[in-house]
Lab assay of single mutants.
Amino acid sequence: MAAGGDHGSPDSYRSPLASRYASPEMCFVFSDRYKFRTWRQLWLWLAEAEQTLGLPITDEQIQEMKSNLENIDFKMAAEEEKRLRHDVMAHVHTFGHCCPKAAGIIHLGATSCYVGDNTDLIILRNALDLLLPKLARVISRLADFAKERASLPTLGFTHFQPAQLTTVGKRCCLWIQDLCMDLQNLKRVRDDLRFRGVKGTTGTQASFLQLFEGDDHKVEQLDKMVTEKAGFKRAFIITGQTYTRKVDIEVLSVLASLGASVHKICTDIRLLANLKEMEEPFEKQQIGSSAMPYKRNPMRSERCCSLARHLMTLVMDPLQTASVQWFERTLDDSANRRICLAEAFLTADTILNTLQNISEGLVVYPKVIERRIRQELPFMATENIIMAMVKAGGSRQDCHEKIRVLSQQAASVVKQEGGDNDLIERIQVDAYFSPIHSQLDHLLDPSSFTGRASQQVQRFLEEEVYPLLKPYESVMKVKAELCL
């Protein structure tokens, strides 16, 4: 049975990233139509530049190519590739079939990587351009969430054990800070992308030097003109047959890092959902379990974690691919890159769409948070109580021993009897502590235990987050809708 299948058929496997999760716009960027249309555009740009620099290419040939950029006979191309065992030459023939007058000058002087690699770089750039505003929107939604809850005390956790208090907004800023680093890295790697350009079979530009009869300047002009037509500021000066596969490492490393950030955020949300302090959106008709109707599973956060793990592992592909590119190139890269580049971007696209949807509907339960604080705060307040007693004339050592005994009794009630923490009640009825009984409410005010959390939130948002989001103001209103 021949390899390949009808990918629109229910009898043929289709990647869930495309069929179930990723956005239509990201799927289109990695589609065959987008790819092969870009090949034709690159052939047109090459012909236009070659004509401008004096090669015998007519206006009629150029116009014929322009008129057929979208006229792609995919069936013919597939048949040609089956016959020739070469995808680029299959599309040269297919393009030439609908451009008979231009057929002889299509791909003039070029090698397969002229269309293959340059198209990949265009796709990487455009895919990054799709991700950047999506990530900015996630940051914006979380920034709104953090600002609104900047002063809401909550129990902090280290080692997932109760620690000092923080605020809900401050905790959210930990998430935002990681995503801001990801946004900066995505922008950097996007701006650092260079075009492969017009380089020939081993990167020496020998074929173009021959076409222009040894004119170095025209060869350099050709490279520059096509690079500018493709919208790049610069091209690699040095290439082998391909652009260095280190570029793929750079791009997928940034995406993998984004995956790590999203995994951490969504894990926190899942843990908070278990504590009943916070939940992701839950639709009115949504079913959490087929057997347990009360369940409210954090399905979206779980999906993000599941896909983020996949995204983090994909960076190993370009690392290994770059390491086995012998001399000017081997074909070890080809099949692998067809999979890992598309999957990385479709996965990143999915987790950003999902995280935006989550961040637009996060639900906080202040009463649950308050109750958990009441359970733990008495123990945390013991040092403040000791200091207040010393100020009232008591002995630190005597007070410490009193607190120690009462704390152990209260802990026994919590752990052995399943009761509430009654340390404060014990202190309130103990005559030894009568000098500070009137101060206990103040000493137990949760806001006095959150330090500068709310001020940190305000400063972080104003100095770091809002300036970073400013270039994306025009796209901030787009909502994230999930079908599944």
Results as ranks from 00 to 15, higher is better:
Ile57Tyr: 07
Leu17Val: 15
Asn357His: 06
His107Thr: 03
Leu331Phe: 00
Gly259Ala: 15
Thr450Trp: 05
Ser434Trp: 11
Met299Leu: 05
Leu53Asn: 06
Lys276Trp: 05
Cys172His: 09
Leu132Trp: 13
Phe36Ser: 09
Pro293Lys: 03
Leu275Lys: 13
Leu152Val: 03
Asp129Val: 14
Asn68Phe: 05
Ser67Tyr: 13
Phe36Lys: 09
Gln458Cys: 10
Leu55Thr: 07
Leu314Ile: 12
Thr347Asp: 12
Leu53Gln: 12
Leu128Cys: 08
Phe433Ala: 04
Arg426Ala: 08
Thr201Gln: 02
Thr321Pro: 01
Ile358Gln: 13
Gln161Val: 03
Val324Phe: 08
Leu135Cys: 11
Ala410Met: 09
Leu84Glu: 11
Leu124Phe: 07
Asp120Ser: 05
Met26Lys: 00
Glu302Pro: 01
Ile373Ala: 08
Met278Thr: 05
Arg125Ile: 09
Leu135Val: 11
Ala410Tyr: 07
Ser448Thr: 12
His91Met: 12
Lys101Glu: 14
Leu484Lys: 12
Lys82Arg: 12
Leu311Gln: 15
Arg85Gly: 02
Trp43Glu: 14
Thr313Asn: 09
Arg374Glu: 04
Asn71Pro: 10
Gly231Thr: 11
Met380Gln: 07
Asp6Thr: 10
Ser67Ile: 14
Ser19Cys: 15
Cys173Gln: 06
Ile427Ala: 13
Ile403Glu: 05
Ala308Tyr: 05
His107Ala: 04
Leu211Cys: 04
Arg125Val: 08
Ser253His: 08
Leu152Ile: 15
Leu352Trp: 01
Lys470Val: 13
Glu213Ala: 09
Pro56Arg: 11
Gln356Ser: 06
Gly116Trp: 00
Ala146Pro: 03
Arg404Thr: 06
Asp422Cys: 07
Thr38Glu: 12
Thr242Asp: 08
Glu80Met: 06
Cys305Arg: 03
Glu79Trp: 10
Ala206Trp: 04
Asp216Ile: 05
Asp268Trp: 03
Ile122Thr: 07
Arg426Pro: 00
Leu222Glu: 00
Leu152Glu: 06
Arg171Gly: 02
Phe36Thr: 11
Thr166Met: 02
Val247Ile: 11
Asp144Lys: 14
Ala392Arg: 07
Pro162Thr: 03
Cys266Val: 13
Gln325Phe: 04
Tyr294Thr: 00
Leu55Val: 06
Arg194Glu: 10
Val390Ala: 12
Leu179Pro: 07
Gln456Cys: 14
Glu64Ala: 08
Arg171Met: 03
Ala78Met: 10
Lys35Val: 11
Glu283Thr: 15
Leu186Ser: 12
Thr244Ala: 11
Ala102Asn: 09
Ala348Glu: 04
Val478Arg: 15
Arg303Ser: 04
Ser334Leu: 04
Leu174Tyr: 03
Ala392Val: 14
Cys27Lys: 10
Glu473Cys: 15
Arg374Met: 06
Val198Cys: 14
Leu469Tyr: 14
Asp32Val: 08
Val115Glu: 08
Ala49Ser: 08
Asn384Arg: 11
Cys180Phe: 12
Leu275Met: 04
His97Asn: 13
Ile385Cys: 13
Pro133Val: 12
Val247Tyr: 10
Tyr34Trp: 11
Thr154Arg: 04
Glu328Ile: 03
Ile386Leu: 05
Tyr294Trp: 06
Asp248Asn: 06
Asp11Met: 09
Trp45Gly: 12
Trp45Ala: 10
Pro10His: 12
Ala163Met: 10
Lys75Gly: 09
Phe345Ser: 12
Thr239Asp: 07
Asp445Tyr: 12
Glu280Ala: 06
Leu352Arg: 02
Glu343Tyr: 03
Ile351Val: 10
Gly361Ala: 14
Leu193Lys: 04
Asn68Pro: 15
Leu423Thr: 03
Ile106Gly: 02
Tyr13Pro: 14
Glu343Val: 01
Arg83Gly: 12
Ala127Gly: 12
Leu443Ser: 01
Glu277Phe: 06
Ile287Gly: 03
Asp144Leu: 14
Thr38Ala: 02
Leu135Ala: 08
Gly259Phe: 00
Leu352Pro: 00
Ala22Asn: 09
Ala2Gln: 13
Lys134Leu: 06
Val88Trp: 03
Cys399Gln: 08
Gln409Asn: 11
Val219Ser: 05
Arg85Glu: 06
Leu443Cys: 14
Gln164Phe: 06
Glu60Pro: 10
Cys483Pro: 15
Ile385Trp: 05
Gly54Pro: 04
Phe157Ile: 03
Val457Pro: 05
Thr167Phe: 02
Ala480Glu: 11
Gln161Leu: 01
Gly200Gln: 13
Asn274Met: 10
Thr204Val: 11
Pro293Asp: 00
Thr154Ser: 07
Thr244Cys: 09
Met76Thr: 15
Lys101Gln: 06
Leu128Ile: 04
Val429Pro: 06
Pro435Gly: 12
Leu482Val: 13
Asp73Tyr: 04
Tyr21Val: 02
Ala206Asp: 07
Leu440Asn: 15
Val115Cys: 10
